[in-house]
Amino acid sequence: MRMLEKDEEADVEVKWEDQQRINEFSRLNNKVSDWEDQLSAKKQEKEYLEDLSGELELADEDEPVKYRLGEAFVAISLEDAQSRLEKEQDKLTEDIDALDTKMTEASERMAELKRLLYGKFGNAINLDK
């Protein structure tokens, strides 16, 4: 840690609106961090499902496939397993797209808040990670 130099100090009053902007930025920053973790997990899961889909293409059509439903494995036909897998992949793609959209909107709002807050407080405020 270091103390601010005289030219870095800001003699600006923090108004209620400014504090609300700082709080909103902080909330959005926390949400984006959580969404990044969720996005990473969903992308990893989608990758696993793509690998599984490739493995199912090599499976014997006459053999039942053990498919996980919740915490149990159920023997189903290969065709049924492939269709369920495809639905799961589609759902994950939708979830990933929704998270990307949320993160983009939050990042745009955070950029706007940064502009306003840095414009008022200059170097006296740090909004970077």
Rank of each mutant, 00 (worst) to 15 (best):
R2M: 11
K6H: 10
E8Q: 15
A10C: 09
A10T: 04
D11P: 07
D11L: 13
W16H: 11
W16T: 12
Q20D: 09
R21F: 04
R21Y: 04
E24K: 15
E24V: 03
E24R: 15
S26L: 06
R27P: 00
L28S: 00
L28N: 01
N29L: 02
N29G: 03
N30D: 11
K31Y: 02
V32E: 02
V32I: 03
V32A: 03
V32M: 01
S33Q: 13
E36W: 01
E36A: 06
E45I: 03
Y48W: 08
E50D: 12
L52V: 00
L56P: 08
E57H: 11
V65L: 14
G70P: 05
F73T: 10
F73C: 08
A75F: 01
I76D: 03
S77T: 15
E79Y: 03
E79G: 02
D80C: 02
E86K: 15
E88G: 04
Q89G: 02
Q89N: 09
K91A: 09
L92A: 10
D95E: 15
D95S: 11
D97L: 07
D97G: 02
D100R: 14
D100Q: 15
T104W: 04
S107M: 03
E108D: 12
E112W: 05
L113Y: 10
L113R: 10
R115L: 09
L116T: 02
Y118R: 15
Y118T: 14
G122M: 07
N123Y: 11
N123W: 04
A124R: 10
A124L: 05
